[in-house]
Amino acid sequence: MSTEELLKKCIERDYEAWNDFIERYKSLVTRSVRYKLKKISVKMKMPRDEFRDIVQEIFLTIWEKNELARVRDAASLEGWLVMVSLNRTSNYCRGRIYAKPKNMVSLEADLFAGKPGISLKSMIPSACFNTVDMVESRELSELLKSEIDSLNHKQQLALKLNVYEHRKQKDISKIMNIPENTVATLVSRAKNRVREKMEEYFERNEGK
């Protein structure tokens, strides 16, 4: 049975089709739940049946509320299922002993505070990268932010996926549905523009 047919039958409340659906997507949902639990670094090991409960709960809610009717098309079904699983798992863990205490620093903030591991370096000429306090200066942060904001939306998204989410060009091209060399152009142009502005900034400051 094709995904379209399966989806249609499930929406029409065909119980047999629903069982097929579970069989087909059980492993995907299980993997998504496991991924999320690992990501939020569950403090203690979750009992096996509790893990199974989450997976079952996800399927049950989809069936009871006929949520499949909301899915746009068969092509986006798998992505949708993964997103549902990720969201429900983090909702489940929220406020339970499993969730680790939040030390919320937004991804945006990381870059501007010069946190190691995020390639702020790649945007700034190395000669200027000798004083850490320079990076932490508010002025510079704001300049960088406004420069990034002034890029066009495709450049911005490609750059953010590259810098904040640490994605490779290949992955970005698949996520954004554009050819890989387009991504390369987008990212390098965006980086160059930011780099130019940074250079200008440092030159101006040295001249002071």
Partner: peptide, 14 residues
């Protein structure tokens, strides 16, 4: 963005 990237990661790990 994070949800998108995570979803992509899970789907491509298949």
């Amino acid at each position: 963005r994070q949800l998108l990237v995570e979803t992509y990661e899970i789907m491509s790990s298949r």
